[in-house]
Simulated assay, not measured.
Amino acid sequence: MHELSITQTIIDTVTEAAQGAPVQQITLEIGELSAILPDSIQFCFEACIPNTPLAGAVLAIQTVPGRGRCRDCGYEMPLEMPYGICDQCDSLAIDIIAGEGLVILSMETMPCA
């Protein structure tokens, strides 16, 4: 399960960025074509945060649908897989333009006392 190592990297990155401030919420953006399972990230996050500066933090996950653009005709289309056939010209030359990434969009912290 590669989601565990991905989640640990997210926790480490947010912990460092928070500079000791308690974290209330983290918002992630996960692409539907990224091969990362949002439910697994959520499960791993909840299992990994006790006894860390992120204990009690809420993880919000937004998914980004896959989109592709045909290199031959320029048509943009939704993609459910990281490949496809152009709906307009039947070309296989499709570039993925959205839905592959994992981004930490934001984190909310409480002021240190």
Results as ranks from 00 to 15, higher is better:
H2S: 08
L4M: 11
S5R: 05
I6P: 02
T7Q: 05
T9N: 12
T9R: 13
I10L: 08
I10H: 01
I11Y: 06
D12M: 12
T13C: 05
V14Y: 03
T15P: 01
T15Y: 09
A18S: 12
G20Q: 08
P22Y: 04
V23C: 04
Q24N: 14
I26T: 01
I26N: 05
E29M: 15
S34G: 10
L37T: 13
L37W: 07
P38Q: 07
D39K: 15
S40Q: 09
S40A: 15
I41R: 04
I41N: 03
Q42W: 12
I49K: 03
P53R: 04
L54A: 04
L54V: 06
L54R: 02
A55G: 05
A55C: 13
G56R: 12
G56N: 10
A57G: 10
A57E: 04
L59M: 15
L59G: 11
A60M: 10
A60P: 03
Q62A: 11
T63C: 14
V64W: 04
P65D: 10
P65Q: 09
P65S: 13
G66K: 03
G66T: 05
G68F: 00
D72E: 11
D72N: 03
G74A: 05
G74I: 06
Y75N: 15
E76N: 07
E76S: 09
P78V: 01
L79S: 00
L79C: 04
E80V: 07
E80P: 01
E80S: 10
M81L: 10
Y83I: 01
G84P: 00
I85K: 02
I85H: 01
I85F: 04
C86I: 00
D87S: 10
D90L: 14
D90Y: 14
S91L: 00
L92D: 04
L92T: 04
L92K: 02
L92A: 07
A93F: 01
A93L: 08
I94E: 03
D95R: 03
D95N: 05
I96T: 02
I96K: 00
A98R: 02
G101W: 02
G101Y: 08
L102K: 07
L102V: 10
I104N: 03
I104K: 00
S106Y: 04
S106N: 08
S106G: 03
M107H: 07
E108K: 09
M110D: 14
M110Q: 15
A113T: 13
